[in-house]
């Protein structure tokens, strides 16, 4: 972190580089934790605007946790917490397929079960699990982003996996 030489993020190029480094992770974190309903993109923007307005008070190496805290609070302020339902991408529909209809139906049912199971996870479990599975982030990276220990991340992810499998079996 060469830019920790500076003691604030009021410089526009520094601000831009902070944005490029953290915004996507922050966005995905917000999405997995709160879903799409509260508009994670806007919250990312708001958080960065807040960072800019208070740039004199925030050191570059504190910017990340500042952003996560602000964005998280923005989300929590927005509304009482509701169950988060994430959307899954539809597989590209083919005009003809050699997979048999039964398989396709099972596939669809499985995805719906998974969707429900994901909603039943705690926010912490789901966030860590999705970051790991989808973003391919190592436990250590997630721990750094969330500001928790690697052990805690491992526990959350494994817990999530266990709970998902149990829920899918039950449904």
């Amino acid at each position: 972190m060469s830019d920790s030489l500076k003691d604030n993020v009021c410089d526009e190029t520094l601000f831009s580089s902070v944005f490029n480094r953290y915004s996507k992770d922050l966005h995905n974190f917000l999405y997995y934790k709160f879903g799409e309903r509260l508009n994670p993109k806007d919250k990312v923007q708001e958080a960065f605007i807040k960072l800019w307005q208070n740039c004199a008070k925030v050191k570059p190496n504190k910017a990340k946790s500042y952003l996560y805290t602000i964005a998280n609070n923005l989300m929590l302020n927005e509304a009482a917490h509701q169950k988060v339902v994430l959307n899954f991408q539809k597989l590209p529909t083919k005009s003809h397929t050699n997979e048999n209809p039964e398989f396709l139906l099972e596939e669809q049912q499985y995805m719906e079960k998974l969707q429900k199971a994901l909603s039943n996870l705690t926010d912490a479990q789901r966030t860590a699990f999705m970051m790991n599975r989808i973003e391919g982030k190592k436990h250590r990276e997630i721990a750094e982003l969330l500001g928790i220990s690697t052990k805690a991340v491992e526990k959350r992810i494994y817990g999530a996996l266990k709970k998902l499998r149990e829920t899918i079996k039950e449904i």
């Binding site: 944005f19 994670p40 899954f88 991408q89 499985y110 969707q115 999705m130 599975r133």
Partner: peptide
């Protein structure tokens, strides 16, 4: 396990392009 892991990938967050977002933040 592998099936679950693969299926979960389809719940990925929507596309996010920091460059575009940065532009609109700078504008704001």
């Amino acid at each position: 396990l592998v099936k679950l892991s693969d299926s979960v990938k389809r719940f990925a967050a929507p596309e996010y392009t920091p460059e575009n977002e940065l532009q609109s933040v700078l504008q704001k």
